[in-house]
Design a protein around this nucleic acid. Structure first.
Lengths: 276, 276
DNA sequence: CAGAATGTTCCACTATGTGAGACGATGTTT
DNA sequence: AAACATCGTCTCACATAGTGGAACATTCTG
């Protein structure tokens, strides 16, 4: 893969890139393996890894000489999920939407050029948080992805569209940028997006953007179904509930982001109270 | 000014420190606020923040001029949780232990000097993952904390003990390093640790370390109860189940860490491009 | 035991990040 | 309204901090 390098922010960028690479392996990775996927010289990579280990972002198993993601990430992510993601605020609305429609519900946010699912309701099974939330998917061929792109800032779009892989998962996948831009215009006009089996055969969905009261893109919300059990028209009937939920989430966000009167809080060093 | 983090490795260390700081606020933080808690000059902080935003680790809300943790962390943490933490492997064992004992069960790992809970079973309610796992707690006054410290490498201990706050949560809290070292020796001899209302009044627990087959410390496992409903003796009766579960987890880990013959099996959900 | 992998360390070079201070844009006080 | 205060942004001379080629050490492999 060609080394694209628009903004390769310095040392920190490289270090975080390495983190991603380690995450990319589904297993502990060795130095030599990482060397091939990161484009970095051995010595540089080595130092970076040492730093990351010392920082607790990675762990190093001296027996197998492998690097794996560190638990510090879990702690950070806990904070990220509760603070920055829509998930905690949207929780109740997802629950209700899921109960009302009986379908699978997804809440997503844009993570760079990709779609990141931050919460999910399966029709039946209870949430299995980390194994569901935290997943990434393509933006150009999913309902939430297109819904979000359609309402993203133009500057974001210009940065993000060229990064789409446009891989043709199914015959109906949109495979070039021009067609996608056209589709996005349509979505912007309609206010909602469809996934017409573009990512996975047999899987369809309706999605709407979650927009702040000021109109800024916060995330996306979708209802998914399979062609065997429902149709696009059937899903469209649920649209009012979907948009209502998106609106409700936006209102909750507005209510939470503003009343930030509370003072400096505790010393960051202190540890929150958790029972053992 | 307290040297909060371990020896702050270079630029990357500073950047990650900033991340922690932002996480430390329970809300979006402003530049000036961060400037007070990180010991960094304004301009330096500013550049770091820019880098982190550009990297997707933070988000910047131009309206309120605040920084919050970015969703990229959630993605990374998903990988961290499934790969590096014991949680996915231990899941079934936690389930069984919880079912057998009926008590609250915790699975933890050491995150630097603190205890990080990676999974939990409440007596009744189903898992509420993110609101439970991902939390940190003190090591010197919790069951899992002491169990893990007792079986940690001496070098780890030397680094980590001085970082304990030794705050006296209750009358029975161990409040100095010497006493803790003694307790740890006892725990090492016994093979298990008690929390005798050391962290929270009325809350007691038994904990054992989870050790790899080669004897390396992987994590800690505990059963918690309240003094009103059970006693230390009562909890001790559950010890066989606890140690059995810890052993079973260790075996699963060994089984999973070794068969690493398979190459990058699936085309895992599109690995995002780093340099872009 | 040669040979080829690996992980680790060294060190001269300079690219990178540094931080005091200047700037302009809001918002607050007299 | 003018004077003041505060905050985010930007600049620039400087040296720290990161770089990467190459040598070294240490295991696997044939």
């Amino acid at each position: 893969m060609t080394e694209v390098r628009p903004p390769g922010d310095g040392t920190v960028g490289k270090a975080l890139g390495v983190l991603d690479r380690v995450a990319g392996f589904g297993r502990p990775a060795r130095l030599a393996e990482l060397q091939t996927v990161c484009g970095l010289p051995k010595a540089t990579l080595y130092r970076l890894l040492q730093t990351l280990v010392s920082q607790g972002m990675l762990t190093h198993d001296p027996d197998t000489q492998t690097y794996a993601l560190g638990v510090r990430l879990v702690r950070l992510a806990h904070a990220a999920w509760t603070q920055s993601s829509l998930a905690p605020l949207a929780r109740q609305h997802l629950d209700r939407l899921s109960a009302e429609t009986g379908d699978t519900v997804h809440l997503a946010q844009l993570d760079g050029a990709h779609v990141l699912y931050v919460d999910k309701r399966n029709a039946r099974r209870p949430v299995d948080m980390f194994s569901q939330a935290g997943r990434v998917g393509p933006a150009y061929c999913t309902g939430v992805g297109k819904a979000m792109l359609a309402f993203a800032e133009p500057s974001v779009l210009d940065r993000v569209l060229p990064q789409q892989s446009f891989h043709g998962f199914t015959p109906s996948t949109i495979t070039d940028e021009a067609a996608l831009r056209q589709e996005l215009a349509q979505i912007r006009a309609d206010g909602h997006a469809f996934d017409r089996e573009e990512h996975e055969p047999g899987i369809i969905c309706v999605a709407v953007p979650v927009l702040s009261l000021r109109g800024r893109l916060l995330g996306g919300l979708s209802i998914t179904g399979s062609v065997t059990r429902c149709s696009l028209d059937g899903l469209t009937d649920e649209l009012p509930k979907l948009t209502a939920a998106a609106q409700a989430i936006a209102e909750d966000v507005a209510a939470w982001r503003f009343p930030e009167a509370e003072p400096a809080s505790l010393a960051a060093n202190e540890v929150p109270n958790v029972r053992s």
